[in-house]
Design a protein around this nucleic acid. Structure first.
Lengths: 157, 157
DNA sequence: AGAAATTAGTTTACGCGGAAACTAAATGAG
DNA sequence: CTCATTTAGTTTCCGCGTAAACTAATTTCT
C-alpha cells in the first residue's frame, strides 16, 4: 500500500530550539521547498532553475558578456562555462566573440531560445505564486520585498 | 595593487526585469550571501552549516535516530550517512545501535561534541544578526517570521 | 616596441549531495 | 517456522559547482 506520508522513524517531538530563528536554516528549508516545487511543475522542460534564469537574463540583455551574467547571478566562471555549453547544445543560446575584445564571449538567444523564453516566461516567473500556499498575498509581497532589501537588489533598473 | 571591488567585465546596467520578484531567485541570492558570511565568520572551526545544525539538533535530542535527524533537516539518507561519519571522525558524535532495533543508529554528542556546541552556540545561532546589515531589527524579525510561516515551521515545541 | 601584469574564459581535479541498488534487521502472511 | 515484505542505513555511481592551474588576449610600464 503506497503511503505518500513518509513519517519514517520515530515520532518523538524533536526539539529544534533557537534553530527556528536562524535565518540560514530557514533559508535552506525554503530553498528545498522551492526546488521541489520547481521540478514538480517545470521539470518537464528539462531546464534547471539556474539555466532558466540565465536564459531570461540573456533574453533581456542580448549580447551580454558571459562574465557579466556570471557576476550578476553569482555564478562562478567555471560553472558558467558549463552552463552556457549546455544551453548552446540545446540550441537555445549562441556564443559570439566580438572583434573589439577577442577574449570575451557574448551571448544571445537563438530564435528557438527566444521562442522558448516567450512561451515559458509566465510559468517560470509566476511559478512561485503557486507556492505561497502558506502565505497570504500581502505576506508574500512583504517577504519578497524584505528579501530584495536583504540581498541588496533594490537599486535595479 | 589589490582591488577588492571586483567590478569585472562591463558596466552596462543589466536588466533583470521581473526576476527580482521571483522568490526562488531571491532565496538563492540570499543563500549565497549567508553562505559567504558563514565561512567568513565561522569557517575557522572547520564545520559546514549543515554539520553545525546536525550537531545542534543532536545536542537538543540526545539519542535521536539518524533517520529522524535526516527527515527533520531535509537531509537525504545517503548524505546523512556521510555527514554523520565526518562528525564521528572528528570525535564530536558517537553512534549507538540500540538492542531493541538493531537496524537503527542512535546519535549522541561526545563530551567534546557537547563542549564544542556549548562554546560555539552563540557564534553559530547569532551569526545571522551580523548579517542583517541591510535590515532593521524589526525587519529582520519580520523576515524570519514570514520564512517560518512559509516553511511551515511554526508548529514546533 | 617588448616584457610584465591584468583580464576573460576554459580545463582539470575534486568534494558534496543525490538516486538507485544493496545489506541487514524486523514484521507479516500462510 | 519459513518465506515474502517492509524498514533503516549503507554503498556505488554520477552530475553539479568550485578552486586552482592554464591559455589567450589586452593593457601597462619602461
Amino acid at each position: 500500500m503506497p503511503d505518500d506520508a513518509l513519517q519514517t522513524t520515530e515520532d518523538a517531538p524533536i526539539k529544534l530550539g533557537e534553530l527556528t530563528n536562524g535565518l540560514g536554516f530557514l533559508i535552506r528549508i525554503a530553498q528545498v521547498k522551492l526546488f521541489e516545487n520547481f521540478f514538480e511543475h517545470l521539470g518537464e522542460y528539462g531546464l534547471k532553475p539556474g539555466e532558466f534564469t540565465v536564459l531570461w537574463v540573456i533574453g533581456l540583455n542580448p549580447g551580454l558578456r558571459q562574465g557579466t551574467v556570471a557576476n550578476t547571478l553569482h555564478i562562478k566562471p567555471a560553472h558558467m562555462t558549463k552552463l552556457t555549453g549546455r544551453l548552446v547544445e540545446r540550441g537555445l543560446v549562441s556564443r559570439a566573440t566580438p572583434a573589439d575584445d577577442r577574449r570575451a564571449v557574448r551571448l544571445s538567444l537563438t530564435p528557438e531560445g527566444q521562442k522558448f523564453v516567450d512561451s515559458k516566461k509566465d510559468a517560470f516567473l509566476n511559478h512561485n505564486f503557486d507556492e505561497k500556499e502558506a502565505l497570504s498575498p500581502e505576506e508574500a509581497e512583504q517577504l519578497i520585498s524584505l528579501l530584495r532589501k536583504f540581498t541588496g537588489l533594490n537599486a535595479c533598473p
